[in-house]
Design a protein around this nucleic acid. Structure first.
Lengths: 245, 245
DNA sequence: GCGTTTTTGTTCGTTTATGTTCATATTATA
DNA sequence: TATAATATGAACATAAACGAACAAAAACGC
């Protein structure tokens, strides 16, 4: 998910100028405004810019390091999954949102119809804290730089205090009808939330279907809904999983 | 959520002038008064200004304004305090860093000589998570957008699990030899950490000396060290507080 | 080379930001 | 308190910016 030259140039301009106008960029880079807009849409999906009428600005909390985190990979796919999932998320009282870039993409877009939202991801919490009228609770624990999330037995124990109506979750890989996670820490938290929850939604972009991860999280059939951006590959045993794409 | 350039300009004017007139702003920014009014309405909804007939003023008794606003406000002073404090921070095993823009400024600069760092501020946690070899723990709880921190009784109770060697703290105001805080939530957390701590450092830039805040945190003498960027005003009773500037 | 996919440009109906007008509300003052 | 001066919000108007759909061009694979 490398940025093309033009988008890199936009980002550089933005870092110098604080804000850029679509019209100016179009002239400077010798392309139509539509192209610039498409660039900005894509860059927004990676969380690299905030759009405003007539142009774009740098988002408040993005620093150098987090840019790479956001650009990591398959940002567009994740965005597509997140956007799709929005259509099927019912109104619930209490929700747990796990630590994953797909769930973060969703949190950025969601127009909250929840009363209480709980998460262990710092970026997700910062994002959601912008929205008014929601009771936002962040779980505490060991902070990992890579995932921007709090984990550990301390965190897991905090989850015992909750019972969620809904869990919005993602995973590192899907194989043989099961969801897998890459680290034991994350698995522990996701599993703990999973146990204390009535309705479960799993978000997976299609790149997860071929992937590999070590720790088994749960069978796909134990989720009430699995949202993806493309059908799962043929020949895999998906039983009666409710896929949506 | 992000302010546009014009609104940022309004805010800057407001910081210098204490109050602004709609008519003046309209002339200065080359827009109609209706536009200024719409800006003010929006800014008021974010709690950034109070409206009055003919103009607007900075909100006086706000519990907490956005951390971005606070970071900009007296940024150089805070930076100076943070840099100064760095010289006097001993090597300790466990440290609590409270939620404040001054402490955040310090966290950004500190070259860690601690094993374990605990904080309830999300930005501080993200900042420190970059540094390797430290055991970073974030407290969970209610997340406030303005302060980017977790507070509440749940958070306070988590603090009971800790005993710190050092607390790095700040406050909203200093008056009559006491430190004050603007919100009860923040006070609760700072106080809880305060109690379970051996060595206490307070960071205050000189603008805090004239300020006002509602909730008393502690007497200055109960801190082992108070770091400022300028001497406290004459005539105030500072007993045997160890000031450093 | 030729069909396919990806990228870019163009058009057009819709939305957004801003300006203008005017009836009402607020403040000043006589 | 009555009256004038001014500020305000709501309604409407307009121009710029936007997204979506389609068309053209370029890049790609075979």
């Amino acid at each position: 998910m490398a940025l093309n030259e033009r988008q890199t140039e936009i980002l550089n301009t933005l870092k110098n100028e604080k804000k850029v106008a679509v019209a100016d960029l179009a002239k400077a880079l010798y392309v139509s405004e539509a192209t610039i807009r498409r660039d900005l849409i894509e860059m927004k999906s990676m969380g690299l810019v905030e759009r405003s009428h007539g142009g774009a600005i740098l988002p408040e909390n993005v620093e150098e390091v987090s840019i790479f985190f956001r650009m990591e990979k398959n940002a567009t796919e994740k965005e597509r999954v997140a956007t799709k999932a929005l259509l099927y998320i019912p109104t619930f009282n209490s929700v747990f949102i796990d630590s994953s870039s797909t769930a973060l993409a969703l949190a950025e877009r969601i127009d909250l119809n929840f009363k209480t939202v709980v998460t262990n991801n710092l970026q997700t919490a910062l994002q959601l804290s912008k929205k008014p009228n929601i009771n936002l609770i962040l779980l505490g624990g060991h902070v990992h730089y890579n995932t921007h999330s709090a984990t550990g037995s301390w965190t897991a124990r905090q989850l015992e205090d909750f019972s969620f109506d809904l869990m919005i979750s993602s995973c590192a890989a899907v194989l043989n009808g099961c969801a897998y996670e890459r680290s034991l820490d994350q698995k522990e938290i996701k599993r703990a939330a999973f146990e204390n929850c009535k309705y479960r939604i799993l978000l997976v972009d299609h790149t997860k279907f071929g992937a590999h991860a070590t720790y088994k999280l749960a069978e796909l059939t134990s989720y009430d809904l699995v949202v993806t951006d493309a059908p799962p590959p043929e020949g895999t045993d998906n039983g009666n999983v409710k896929f949506l794409y």
